[in-house]
Design a protein around this nucleic acid. Structure first.
Lengths: 262, 262
DNA sequence: CGCCCATTTGACAGCTTTCAAATCGCGTGG
DNA sequence: CCACGCGATTTGAAAGCTGTCAAATGGGCG
C-alpha cells in the first residue's frame, strides 16, 4: 500500500461528493485542478472588499470568515468558511468582492483558476450540480442567519451559532468528534451575531452556568446536544445535509463530551 | 407595425439582459420558454416551506417576499422579490424550500420548468452567466441585510430598506420614477428588519418629521435622495448594478418627488 | 519576565419591546 | 349615500434586553 500525501483539494472533492453524485473521473479531475497553495495567518486578509480576481480560493484547513463594515465602523461577520468551502466563486465571470475575508485561525488555502473550475463544470453535470447546490446552501445559511439576527435573543443566537459551527465542522471533517475545537473569539462571535463582545461574554457564561456548554481554552464541550439544540432553536434542515449525514451526534443523546479540565 | 402584448417573461428577459451579454437568440429563447401563468392575491402562499417542486416561479408583476419563522413564532422576511426575479431556483436539481414565499401585493407569476431553464442555460453561456450572477447578487443582498440587522439602529435600517427597495424597483421597471409605490405594510417592514411594527411606526414618523420621506397612502415620496441615502448608510455597490444603471435618480440631487396630498 | 490580546466585571444609559387601547382608512353591504 | 367592519396605523407608559464605558483579570507567546 502506497503512502500518499493528502491531495491539496481533498476537502473540496469530499464536499462536492456530498453535494451531488460524482463519478470517479469527476473526483480525479477536481483533485487534479492546478492550484497555488498558500498559508494565511490568523486575522490576515484572504480577500479584500473591492477585489476582483480571476481565481477562487478554496479552504484546505482552518476557519475563515467574511465580513462587512457599516458606515459607523461596526463590523459584521456574514459567513464562516470551513475546509472545502469555495471563497469568491461568483459564477462564470469575476465580480467585485462585496466583503472582506479573513482567517480566524491559520488557514491553508488553494487558489484555483476560475476558468479551470468553470471549464471543469462545463464537462461534468455532477460538478455543475454540486457547485449550484453549494451556493444555494450558502444562501440558505445566510437566510437562517438573518432569522437569527432579527428574531432571536442573545442567548438563542449564541447557542445557534455554536450548533451551526459544530454541525458544519463535523460534516466537513467527516464525523462527529467528541470535542470541538472552537477558536472563534468572543468578539468575533459578537460581530457574527450583532452583539457586543461584552454581552457575548455574559451570554456565554450563562450558557455555561446552565450546563449547555462547557470546556476550557480552545476546546468546547457540549454535554447534551439535544438541550443545546433546543435552547438554540436549531433545526438543521436549512443546512440541507444529505440524509446519510446525521444532524446530531449519532446515538448520543446525552454525554457527547470528552472530559477536560474545567 | 404589429401590436403585440407584453410577453409573459419580458421582465425576466430584461433582467437577464442586465446581468450578462445576451444574444437576440438568447432573449428570444427566454421569452419562448413554456410557462404556466397564474395570479396570486396579497398574502397568499406562492411557495410553502418544505415544498420541493420541479418548476421555478418567475415574478411578472407585483411584489413578494420570502419569510422564515422562528420557534417562538417570530416571523422574519429574508428577501423581497420583484418583477423578473426567479423564485425557487435551487440549481439543477430541486431542493426542499427553506422558506415560504407570499405576495405583498397581487402578483402575476409564471411557472417555468426547471429542466427547460437548465437546458436553455446549457446551450447558452450568456444565460448561464446571467443566472449565476443573479444568484450571486441575491446572496450579496442577503449579506447586506445581515449587516443591516446586526449593526444598524432602527432609523438606519428602515431608511436602508426604503433605499434598497426604491433602487431595485426602479431598476426592475427600467428607470427611476418620480414617485414610488410602496405597498409594504409597517408590520412587514418590521418583519424584514427585526423590529416590531410599533417601533417601525415610530421610526417612520421620525423619518417623516426629518423630511427624509413623505407621501400619503401607498405612494412614498423621497424629497431628497442623497439625504435619505446618507441617513441609511446606503451604498449601492452591493447590488452590483451595471455601470450604465445609475444608483440614484439621474441628475436630481434634490426634488426627486411628485407632489401629492400630504 | 513582560507584553498584548482576550476575557471578565460593574454600573448605568438607551434603544426596543410589550401591552393596551384609540384612531384611521377603506372596501363592503344596506 | 351612509353605516359597518376589519386591518393598518398611532399613541402612551413601563419593562427589558443590550450597549457603553472603564477597569481589572487572565492566558499565551516571545
Amino acid at each position: 500500500m502506497l503512502m500518499s500525501t493528502v491531495p491539496s483539494l481533498a476537502a473540496l472533492s469530499q464536499k462536492l461528493t456530498r453535494l451531488a453524485v460524482l463519478s470517479d473521473e469527476d473526483r480525479r479531475a477536481v483533485l487534479d485542478l492546478p492550484v497555488t497553495l498558500m498559508t494565511s495567518r490568523p486575522g490576515r486578509c484572504i480577500v479584500r472588499e473591492g477585489d476582483k480576481t480571476d481565481h477562487v480560493t478554496v479552504v484546505r484547513s482552518g476557519l475563515a470568515y467574511s465580513c462587512k463594515v457599516a458606515g459607523d465602523g461596526g463590523r459584521m461577520i456574514v459567513a464562516f468558511h470551513m475546509p472545502g468551502d469555495i471563497i469568491g466563486f461568483h459564477g462564470v465571470k469575476p465580480m467585485v468582492a462585496d466583503c472582506t475575508v479573513q482567517g480566524v485561525s491559520t488557514c491553508e488555502l488553494a487558489q484555483v483558476s476560475r476558468q479551470d473550475l468553470v471549464d471543469l463544470a462545463a464537462t461534468s453535470p455532477g460538478i455543475t450540480e454540486a457547485l449550484w447546490r453549494d451556493r444555494e446552501i450558502e444562501a440558505s445559511i445566510l437566510r437562517e442567519w438573518a432569522l437569527n439576527l432579527g428574531r432571536r435573543n442573545a442567548r438563542t443566537r449564541v447557542a445557534h451559532l455554536i450548533c451551526e459551527l459544530m454541525v458544519r465542522q463535523s460534516v466537513a471533517s467527516m464525523g462527529y468528534q467528541s470535542s470541538f475545537e472552537f477558536l472563534v473569539t468572543q468578539e468575533q462571535i459578537g460581530d457574527a451575531l450583532g452583539l457586543t463582545a461584552v454581552h457575548v461574554n455574559r451570554t456565554v457564561q450563562q450558557l455555561r452556568r446552565d450546563g449547555l456548554i462547557a470546556g476550557a481554552g480552545r476546546v468546547l464541550v457540549i454535554p447534551d446536544w439535544s438541550s443545546l439544540a433546543a435552547a438554540a432553536d436549531f433545526q438543521p434542515a436549512y443546512l440541507h445535509l444529505p440524509l446519510d449525514v446525521p444532524a446530531a451526534p449519532a446515538g448520543a443523546r446525552k454525554s457527547h463530551h470528552v472530559s477536560l479540565a474545567a
